[in-house]
Design a protein around this nucleic acid. Structure first.
Lengths: 222, 222
DNA sequence: ATATTATAGATTGCATACAATCTGGTACGC
DNA sequence: GCGTACCAGATTGTATGCAATCTATAATAT
């Protein structure tokens, strides 16, 4: 394991979060304060702060006096996450339709074009990442920081869920995103909201919840 | 200032949060770690954890190397909070209409009756508190912990906003709550959702954002 | 052989000392 | 008199030691 330069709390938070999202730290992995402290060349204090923050965002679970483990939402909880995300993001795109400027439309467009390019290159991980970009952009353009705050959290969790349970499709496609952009351009609130909800429901229905995951429980205390 | 028995982190969190919600700790009050540590008879360590959590919930603001102060959302931010709360709580009551049991209907009823009783007694603070009870209950009965999580946070912020800016009405009334309960009973999703949105918009429109608050800035370093 | 207890090691929780940073005031120079 | 630089006190940020708790192993009794 290679060690890294000393970094501040925010950097450490981002590193660990990215590692979880990219499945480098998989569910049930124990996160031991001392080890992380050594890795990041800091004391346990800032590590503990970062772990608490990640626990707050439900990416890890802290069990008092026992420690922190990476988690994936249960099937039931995953469905809750997908459901509320649909509600929030559908409302978000409606909001975006109302206030959007020409300049912002271009911003969205370039985000989707990046996604499209990565997809053409065939880089699966990159196109998955960039597909999130569109959704973050929608959250951002509501101009309401709470949409961004909650949707960022929920989308991260969906990312973990998709990685963990597996999904039928290569995440949400740029074709749908272009369609949504068109609807935004034309200020078709209702239709955009409905199409977004549909788009997200397809993602949700593509996840393999039905499979038996009891086998992977063997990893718990490995 | 009276000192209190030593308590655990969760208790300390609740104490400070309640103090903020009840306006005992008002916006712009500085929260100094050492003083809080002395009050609660613990070291600064658990206090720092609590402060970070409160900052995450936007009840206080931590400025690096400077400290923590109690905050109230700006007018612009308050409007964002009220808007997203409307979206989430309207969706929540729709959800509740779908899955509710007879037993749960009784639970809601008794919550509203408590509210009604406090209102009759004329205890303003208590009826304000209990009026929140109805909204928490709705969030709870969605059966989706994320509704609860986000709505609890948003409702707390609305509480702070109402206390700070002032409001035309004595918060949301039990009459409307009974009306909503009826709609839930009859499983009228659409109507319940619309009425809830309306109910919350009335609360929002009753807040005195238009007033000039530059005067209250005099309290800053009192 | 199985179940139970004892114990050592590892890990987290908390308190505290010290370093870094910020604030406010004072002295100095212009 | 005005502005700048500096210093002292206060406060936060970080590291670390020790206590409390938990885990896993091994020894003992049945």
């Amino acid at each position: 394991m290679t060690e890294v330069q000393q970094r501040n709390e925010e950097d450490i938070y981002n590193s660990i979060k990215q590692a979880i999202l990219q499945h480098k730290l998989r569910p049930n992995t124990r996160l031991i304060e001392k080890e992380l402290a050594k890795q990041f060349k800091v004391s346990r204090t800032p590590i503990r702060n970062v772990l608490r923050r990640l626990a707050y965002e439900k990416l890890i679970k802290i069990i008092p006096n026992k420690g922190a483990i990476v988690i994936c939402p249960s099937i039931e909880e995953s469905k809750q996450i997908l459901q509320i995300r649909e509600v929030l993001e559908a409302a978000a795109i409606r909001q975006v339709c109302r206030n959007i400027t020409e300049e912002q439309i271009e911003e969205i467009k370039s985000v989707i074009e990046e996604e499209q390019a990565a997809n053409a290159k065939g880089d699966l991980f990159e196109s998955l990442d960039l597909s999130l970009g569109f959704h973050y952009k929608i959250a951002e353009l509501t101009g309401n920081q709470y949409y961004y705050r909650y949707l960022e959290e929920l989308i991260s969790l969906v990312y973990v869920i998709v990685s963990f349970y597996g999904s039928r499709q290569v995440f949400s496609g740029w074709q749908d995103h272009f369609k949504l952009l068109d609807l935004i351009k034309e200020r078709k609130e209702e239709e955009a909201e409905r199409f977004m909800a549909e788009h997200l429901r397809e993602v949700a229905e593509g996840i393999f919840f039905e499979e038996d995951f009891s086998i992977s429980l063997g990893d718990v205390f490995k």
